[in-house]
Design a binder for these strands. Structure first.
Lengths: 252, 252
DNA sequence: GCAAAAGTGTTCGGGCTACACCCATGG
DNA sequence: CCATGGGTGTAGCCCGAACACTTTTGC
């Protein structure tokens, strides 16, 4: 059986400040290669799969600093490419500041999501300087046997393959779940950050605006205030915070 | 690459009533074969892996009624057996009443768990009529690269392999997570059930006693009262309830 | 002064916990 | 009568949502 792994690598980028009085807005990004596929890696029987994935990322970006977890194993014959019969996906989060070298066949695409709640459909636009990819993923509820299956389908012709579309879709859902239950949000940020930066990570992943006064109180036990202050722009400067290493959350 | 799937099949069993005034107590169970391994199935490149898993379960129990979800893909060379280099685990929940035929090389083992919180260690005893298997799984926190890895290790010699021990451990953790966020608890029960039965499912999976008055209110939106009443024993009879099909939960 | 972000405090409501209390059953 | 489970109600607490308000900055 031919088995490959692939990487769904999330990162963020800061937009230019639109107004001297405004924050820089963050955008969620995902990495694709020149054929609109997720980067793949080979799996050997000599090492732990996760180690193969980690080595591939180090090879790509020349850094050991990133978050990684297994996402899912895909084995639908409809998805098979000529090379692979089984695809094991790993979700990766990387802070661009830690990237030492950027491979020239890979690039980050901004992700724009529109949720059509009633339709259980998600419109996704991936966009970089040269390309704009649009696709729709519909969740179909299938009452199969005793239980409810949620099946995601690509409902339009798109420049990305159905497998890639569905993996990105699943990756975003996993991010949403993890950000509420773990400390992954910090993987997007520098060691020291402003609370508004952390809030922006939550907002772009959850795709909704949060009230800063409440967000502040909610994440207070997870962070530590430093005595450093950053003057950003034409508004009150903020203290820098770090992750509170003593904070322990129930891990799934 | 040689790839197999395996099944971690959970079910429950009722103990004999100890006292005419007492409820029958439920026990959580997991299925092992005569060599203390989880049942495996072959993966073909002709069909969706989940379908292979489902077909295997139907073949074993002659029923289409069960819950199934992918658990994890294991690829640590330390775990490889002579047959398999990659193992894709599926978590299954089955109600014994739906089992039409019981394979004679497989049997259900009662699961007893003792949590040693401080040690981050779990003592697990698997027991059936003939055999008693004891093992300990320790969770080691490894600060690897930028992030925290939680690695589970079998810390004693045991009749089960390390991979089997870890899969059962992960399966129980997944059950605990799912029971709080989905409706899997109902997969253990008949279509009609008493609230105390549902509560027992929660209690054996979460491994703690719940206050019935509060449990009742918590699950109230998920269930529907029927007009049927069951006289069980020397206490007030209870109404039968069913799952409320209109109830929709946020799925992970 | 103004607009925007940083930061603090207060109110309100829903959900969970603990617990008191009544009902129905078989022995 | 009793013990046990079935079922209802209530008071207290915590947490999140909404929002008012002050401070600090650059222009």
């Amino acid at each position: 059986m031919k088995v490959y792994g692939n990487l769904i690598i999330f990162s963020t980028d800061n937009e230019e400040r639109k107004d001297v009085r405004r924050l820089k807005e963050k955008k969620l990004q995902v990495m694709l290669d020149e054929n609109n596929n997720l980067p793949i890696f080979e799996i050997s029987n000599k090492e732990y799969i996760k180690t193969s994935a980690e080595n591939r990322i180090e090879e790509l970006f020349k850094t050991p600093k990133f978050y990684i977890e297994q996402l899912y194993t895909w084995g639908d014959p409809n998805y098979y490419t000529k090379d692979s019969e089984l695809m094991i996906s790993y979700l990766v989060i990387i802070n661009k500041k830690n990237i030492k070298e950027m491979p020239n066949n890979l690039s980050f695409y901004d992700i724009f999501i529109e949720n059509e709640e009633k339709e259980m459909q998600q419109n996704i636009i991936l966009k970089n300087d040269n390309k704009k990819i649009h696709y729709k993923v519909k969740t179909i509820v299938k009452r199969n046997r005793e239980n409810i299956d949620y099946i995601n389908k690509l409902v339009n012709k798109s420049e990305v393959s159905e497998l890639t579309a569905i993996i990105i879709h699943s990756g975003i859902k996993r991010l949403r779940n993890r950000i509420e239950n773990t400390n992954i949000a910090f993987s997007f940020l520098d060691k020291e950050f402003a609370i508004s930066e952390l809030q922006q990570i939550y907002e772009i992943i959850l795709d909704k605006k949060l009230v800063s006064a409440n967000f502040r109180k909610k994440i207070e036990p997870m962070i530590k205030k430093t005595d450093k202050v950053v003057k950003e722009s034409a508004y009150r400067p903020s203290y820098q915070y770090t992750f509170n290493e003593e904070f322990i959350r129930n891990w799934v």
